[in-house]
Design a protein around this nucleic acid. Sequence first.
DNA 1: CTGCATCACTGCAAGTTTGCAGTTGCGCAA
DNA 2: TTGCGCAACTGCAAACTTGCAGTGATGCAG
Lengths: 206, 206
Amino acid sequence: MPPTDSLSLRERKKTETWHAIHDAAAELALDDDTKHVTVEAISSEAGISQRTFFNYFPTKEDAILGVRTPRVPELPEDFLDGEGLIQRTTELLLTVGRSTYAEGDADRRSLLFEKFPHLLLRRREMMIEGEDLVYQAIATAMAEHPDWSEGLNGHSVESAARMLTMAAGVPLRYLIVSGGMPGARLETGSLTTALDLYQDLYRKLS
Amino acid sequence: MPPTDSLSLRERKKTETWHAIHDAAAELALDDDTKHVTVEAISSEAGISQRTFFNYFPTKEDAILGVRTPRVPELPEDFLDGEGLIQRTTELLLTVGRSTYAEGDADRRSLLFEKFPHLLLRRREMMIEGEDLVYQAIATAMAEHPDWSEGLNGHSVESAARMLTMAAGVPLRYLIVSGGMPGARLETGSLTTALDLYQDLYRKLS
DNA sequence: CTGCATCACTGCAAGTTTGCAGTTGCGCAA
DNA sequence: TTGCGCAACTGCAAACTTGCAGTGATGCAG
């Protein structure tokens, strides 16, 4: 759990409730002898009403997984300037991807993926959703940026943004695939390695 | 704490919050090195906002003491009939008096009275308030009762109800006084004794 | 196959909590 | 005395939770 100080009482209680629901859902789901985890059971375990449950999560699965709708942080003014844009974008994608899960949940999440493989589908969905948000943010930034707003060689900023996001996504996809399990954690260290590899390869081919 | 099952989630949380505030307030107040217990400290300890504090208690003192506004239970149909009306009324007064406090708090309440004698004033106030409610309930019941509604010997039902309540209050006042400390607990056993004494005395004098 | 129960999920009104901007009373320093 | 600051307490709108009465999908006994 992140530091809950410096949050307003309201915000603090909201995260507490979020975690209470997610924890209850995940624990109940991982309980071996649990066949059908009902929303009622989760809600009662978390000490809230069923209606509140659905105020926090659109589906039971999201509660078990602990999914949040991805949030793209405000881009720095100079995000589009200078060297290393692809790398910065990759890091942004990683940040956004991580923002869709409860922090520090990696172990339990692995267990969940093992026991309920269909949750991987949901994970993939969230990834795609996050990528799309990143694309939109970058497209907007490009449209407002003097060096990019005119498009490049007849390509629209939308195309440029889309391509950048795709390219930047490569190292992440690589990591997920080479990590074997898609549920495996993405270490920042291995990301750097993957980025190096990517860039080396890119230079060799161009 | 009373059984919280069979209460709706809403009711349950309300009592939980009530106890959280009262507990925080009482404990902070009893802390030796506490000079000024602020509403802010109590609220923060209880995990609620200051505004919510005042949704539960009109004053800080009431929170420390754990005061509720007294509730008179519905009188049984035959409350006014038959022998022992005074005794029944005394028991009603005791019930109402007890309803103004958190249950099972007697020990801590004694400490509070020791440390903050001015709380006794508040206690007295609540008692009086409760007595008045009992008076009103009985007056209403009398007005609706065929045997009483006409008044007695020219006295109004209000007078009769007031006098009954006064008379019924005697054993309680006796107990409080003879118990030394007004903060002392009222045992049901000693109440019975006091009632006996009262009736004996009454018979002797009449 | 058919009614019936169960469970996920939604809409809405009513109840609760929070944040915030006051107002008031009180002690204390200049 | 005057002004200041602190802390109790209030009013109100906005945010949040709850209860409840659904709807629709799925499975299962008869």
